[in-house]
């Protein structure tokens, strides 16, 4: 089901920077501040990670952050509240709700698209809901004008077109096999893979999984339309969590994260 005329999710289509945070690590308040900082630093969209007990696609850094957030009882409802709060405070970049399927299912599929819309969420990314299983949810989301972000993996081969044809917002291109987490180098084949996906995609193609350095960002910006950076940011938040958890030192913690983000993307 293709929508007739739809505003693109992102307002540019090259050198995109899409960071990911685990909402509620180390606290909901800090997450809100981090999102504002990311928007100010030039993020083109932010992925709001919903903490989950069994994050199959994630490596140890995001697992640890999720379990810290869960220890504080952070739920999908809180993530929506964070979205609403930052939008109210003037964050005007798209917000992508990144959740595993089970929390969405328990919230209720119809309820979540309505509540997400109300909270100012612009798109969904559900890593364990492949196209074959997502038809119903996608049409619910589309009815509210929300996009479903699809992933394409190095093993997708003949499925690439099947995925890109239905892609909305941007295509999340999984750089390499395995779970999320920083990688020191990439197989050269990834550039051919990016090329192949770009050929059939009508929306921007952003590369994620493992990107953590300026060199990697530059490299992928040359080949793809954007980068998604998760674990490297989540790890920086983790390293600064003492500072971030104390009112008196929060600003310097945020400054450290901002410095890291700028080191990744500023020219």
């Amino acid at each position: 089901m293709k929508q007739a005329v739809k505003q693109p999710l992102l307002n540019k289509s090259s050198e995109l920077f899409i960071p990911y945070v685990v909402v509620g690590d180390p606290s909901l308040e800090v997450t809100e501040r981090v999102i504002e900082m990311l928007a100010e630093s030039g993020a083109d969209a932010v992925e709001l990670g919903v903490p989950y007990s069994d994050p199959l696609a994630d490596g140890p850094v995001i697992q640890r952050a999720a379990s810290r957030a869960l220890d504080q009882g952070v739920s999908l409802k809180d993530v929506l509240q964070v979205a609403a709060n930052v939008k109210k405070r003037g964050v005007d970049i798209p917000l992508v709700l990144f959740s595993y399927y089970n929390p969405v299912l328990q919230f209720g599929e119809e309820a979540i698209v309505q509540e997400a819309k109300r909270a100012g969420i612009d798109a969904f990314l559900i890593p364990d809901l492949p196209l074959e299983e997502s038809e119903e949810f996608t049409s619910l989301a589309q009815a509210q004008g929300l996009s479903m972000i699809s992933l394409v993996a190095p093993t997708s081969h003949d499925r690439i077109e099947y995925i890109t044809k239905r892609a909305e917002g941007f295509v999340y291109l999984v750089s390499s096999l395995g779970v999320t987490g920083e990688r020191s180098n990439y197989n050269e084949e990834v550039y051919q893979f990016i090329e192949r996906v770009k050929q059939t995609s009508t929306v921007p193609v952003a590369v994620g999984f493992g990107i953590s350095s300026r060199e990697q960002v530059d490299q992928f910006w040359q080949h793809a339309d954007g980068v998604i950076i998760g674990s490297a940011i989540v790890r920086t938040i983790e390293e600064n969590r003492q500072l971030l958890s104390n009112e008196n030192t929060m600003e310097s913690g945020l400054k450290n994260i901002k410095a890291f983000v700028e080191s990744l993307i500023s020219s």
């Binding site: 399927y101 993996a153 999984v174």
Partner: peptide, 20 residues
């Protein structure tokens, strides 16, 4: 065909595993 037993079952996995 979709691996369903009534409403249950299916294939709720990351894209990376779909082809396998």
């Amino acid at each position: 065909q979709k691996g369903r037993y009534g409403a249950f079952g299916g294939r709720f996995v990351p894209e990376t595993l779909m082809v396998a």
